[in-house]
């Protein structure tokens, strides 16, 4: 599957022989337990190599958040993985038991959420929460765990970590809280970090510092990151590759620079036009129409209703076309070349 003969021109920084840390094969997530009636995500294929940062971009209804939850075994009980496999470091964890997930979480895979206020227990000091997660996985004494926690708090750029160890969540600013979340996620040195809109609730200046932090940690620890966001600019600041999702499926993927400068899918183009700001007085870019509900997904191309290039062929559901390694697009009429 991985082509070892050509040099990597697709954005993955490392030697093609490096292991795949997280792989999703044709994953679909459905409502219900036995094969389910309604799908919220279909045919998701994703691969993250060791040390790579992959961005998962999409708006509401794209299914990106539940895909992330599936990768840490935290799908709400009303949802389940219908088809496909999720592999962590080669191990099939699609239907792993909760006990098994408890062992994997923190050591193999960790997750950081959007709102640090609801992720941290307001009744306990942050230090003890980190210690708790260390001791859930390793038999170390409180003192050793505390020291490790203070170390990692310093590592994520929290000044005076020994004092902050005893702080309560509400005593910290949003940015600091998010750093604490990242610290807690990293303390057991997981192979992959999944971050679901981690900076959306933060100020722009704080966001920039968190992005720098994650970039640095990723390089230093050779940790893979799956960064989920609706913000294309944020994703392009730190991701090597990007996957664009729309209405529960992957529509385009590839190296960041290439996808964003020569987007082939009409949705990606529209998204880019909406995100880029023009001169004063110019009209703002947008995509007409709105994202369909899962019950309204077309049997053909799900973006067809909003696409200016749609024709009769688009009544057929387009398959994913592989352009090169890691570069793919799901469209009957992909765009060629850069925008004019």
């Amino acid at each position: 599957m991985i082509d070892t003969s050509t040099p990597s021109t697709d954005g993955s920084r490392l030697d093609p022989a490096t292991p795949v840390i997280l792989r999703l094969e044709d994953v679909s997530i459905v409502v219900g337990n036995r094969g389910g009636d309604r799908a919220l995500v279909t045919g998701l294929d994703l691969e993250i190599d060791k040390g790579e940062v992959v961005g998962l971009v999409g708006e509401s209804g794209s299914g990106k958040s539940i895909s992330a939850l599936a990768c840490v075994g935290l799908l709400p009980s009303a949802l389940s993985v219908g088809r496909g496999r999720i592999l962590l470091s080669g191990e099939d964890v699609t239907h792993a038991s909760e006990d098994h997930w408890r062992q994997l979480r923190g050591r193999e895979v960790a997750m950081v959420f959007q709102d640090p206020m609801t992720s941290l227990d307001p009744c306990f000091r942050i230090g003890s929460q980190i210690v708790e997660s260390i001791r859930a996985h390793q038999h170390v004494s409180r003192e050793v765990a505390a020291k490790r926690a203070i170390d990692v708090l310093g590592h994520v750029g929290i000044a005076d970590p020994a004092r902050r160890f005893d702080a309560f969540p509400h005593e910290l600013s949003g940015g600091l809280r998010q750093r604490v979340m990242i610290a807690a996620a990293l303390v057991l040195e997981p192979k992959v970090l999944i971050a679901d809109e981690p900076t959306t609730a933060l100020d722009v200046t704080t966001q920039a510092s968190i992005i720098e932090l994650v970039k640095g940690l990723c390089a230093e620890l050779s940790m893979s990151v799956l960064w989920i966001s609706h913000d294309l600019a944020v994703v392009s600041e730190l991701a090597d590759r990007v996957a664009v999702t729309y209405a529960g499926e992957l529509v385009e993927a590839g190296c960041i620079r290439e996808v964003f400068s020569e987007a082939r899918h009409h949705y990606t183009r529209g998204l880019l036009e909406s995100a880029v700001h023009g001169k004063r007085g110019e009209a703002f870019g947008f995509i007409s129409g709105s994202v369909p509900e899962p019950s309204d997904w077309s049997a053909g191309c799900r973006f067809g209703a909003r696409c200016s290039r749609a024709d009769e062929q688009c009544a057929q559901h387009p398959a994913m076309t592989q352009v090169r390694l890691h570069r793919m697009v799901r469209c009957h009429h992909p765009i060629h070349g850069a925008p004019s």
């Binding site: 009980s77 408890r102 997750m111 959420f113 709102d115 992720s119």
Partner: peptide, 14 residues
């Protein structure tokens, strides 16, 4: 990852 990792929405299966 216990207290630190609560998912943001829980549809309780009641």
């Amino acid at each position: 990852m216990t207290a630190v990792e609560l998912p943001q929405f829980t549809l309780v299966d009641r």
